[in-house]
Amino acid sequence: MSFDGLWPYIYIAIAGWLATDLWRWAGVVAGNRIDERSEVLNWVRAVATALVAAVIAKLIVFPTGTLEASPLWLRLGAVAFGGLCFFIGGRFRQIAGIAAAIAFLAAGLALLGV
């Protein structure tokens, strides 16, 4: 499509903004009716977490861009190594886990010449 004129902005507003904010508004309406200590909220939390987990899995297993050309074992290895450092990282576990995973991936990409 052409990127000139007003049309791209209308396209973004309808197919992007409206398509996304509709669900946020629906979430407000639904969330307003849920009691904070109810079993329903437990279910909603579990579904929301599983949805985000599915996004994470897709980013790792089926990445786009540069990583598309990298081997799956390298990406899974980076996550496993990051996880190991996360669980022994104590107070700094988040930074330790993330840094370890990225370092593993960068080293692997460099060695493989991706």
């Binding site: 992007g16 996304t20 629906a26 979430g27 969330g31 849920i34 909220l41 579904v47 929301a48 996004v55």
Partner: peptide, 17 residues
């Protein structure tokens, strides 16, 4: 886009309470 954004609903619904 709307299919990818359905997940906003439970996320927002969990956050609001």
């Amino acid at each position: 886009v709307t299919l990818s954004s359905v997940r906003m609903m439970p996320m927002v619904a969990a956050l609001i309470p």
